[in-house]
Computed example of a mutant assay.
Amino acid sequence: MDLGLAGSAALVTGGNRGIGRAVATALAREGARVVLLGRDPDTLATTAGEIGAAGHVVADTTDDPAVVAAVDEAARLLGGLDVLVNCAAPRATTAAVPGLPGLDEADFLRNLDTKALGYLRTARAAAPYLRRRGGAIVNVSGMNARATGNITGSVRNIAVVALSKNLADDLGPAGIAVTCVHPGLTVTERTEGDPQYATAASANALGRPVTAAEVADVVTFLASPRGRVANGAVVTVDGGRPGAIWA
């Protein structure tokens, strides 16, 4: 299937590692011209060279002026923007959470600032470019949005769901589709070869780990012209959590 991404201009935040790197790789393989956004110029430059990206820009997504400057530079490098994929966020933790008495307020606020507000900042900066010819925003959230036991993880991820639907309604009339993707435990370059992680990641209906490349395939479809009819959708890519029914 031709996804219609050849020659399109895509910006991927958090594109130097994990799911973000896999998404940038998948977009580039479909013929998109990709720019990576992140905080570490060295790993960004290395990753951009390895996957054939068009370039990289440096910004901390908690810093709005830096985000605006980085998005403007990405648009300059690419001659505009058609796709934004938001992946830049603190790593989710699988460690036991101490519950309400042990809630770390500073960490809670850091997660919201980096993930929910960070996604909003990049979307706001990218919107004027996307409005010129339509396009797509895909926000990578996570299955903690549908589970209790980790207050910070649940709140930061459900905030991304609410953000995504608001943007879908706001930007849809301009031809910009916005979707949200929920990965579960996902094998990346950091966890590849870790048998304990693989066992935990296999606790889905498929009975095997889901890889970052598989998540990236779904994200790439949603970012493409063929996937934009899913505007406003929340898509799970965790291999199927047993027992839950989501209508």
Rank of each mutant, 00 (worst) to 15 (best):
D60S: 03
S8H: 04
A69K: 03
R133T: 15
V140S: 02
V140T: 05
V161M: 01
V83K: 04
D63K: 13
V85E: 09
A201P: 02
G239V: 10
A147C: 05
I245M: 10
D63E: 07
A88L: 14
A45G: 11
V181T: 04
A126G: 05
A212F: 10
P209Q: 12
G31P: 14
V234H: 07
A54P: 05
S154W: 00
A48C: 03
V219I: 15
V138R: 02
G149T: 00
G79S: 01
V178P: 13
N166K: 05
H182I: 13
V71S: 10
A54I: 02
E105C: 00
A54W: 02
Y197D: 15
G31H: 10
L117V: 15
N204W: 12
G118T: 09
D2T: 11
L77E: 08
A205P: 06
E214Y: 01
G239Q: 10
P101T: 03
A74Y: 06
Y129W: 14
V218G: 08
A59K: 02
A92H: 01
G153T: 06
D60H: 04
A95Y: 06
A216G: 12
R17N: 06
T220V: 12
A174T: 10
D170A: 12
V210E: 01
G153C: 06
D2Y: 09
T43P: 06
G207H: 08
P209R: 04
L130F: 08
R76P: 04
W246G: 09
V57C: 06
N150Y: 01
T191F: 10
A59E: 10
D104T: 02
N139I: 11
L117Q: 06
V97N: 11
G14V: 09
G134C: 09
G79H: 02
V155F: 00
V57M: 09
V178R: 05
T94N: 10
D169S: 13
N150A: 00
L37H: 04
I137W: 03
E214F: 01
K165M: 13
P183N: 11
A6R: 05
L163T: 14
N157G: 03
A136T: 11
N204E: 13
D40E: 01
R33C: 06
G118R: 12
V215K: 03
V71A: 07
D64S: 05
K165N: 10
E214G: 08
G14N: 07
D2W: 12
F108T: 00
R76T: 15
L117D: 07
G227T: 13
G193R: 02
A233N: 07
G102K: 00
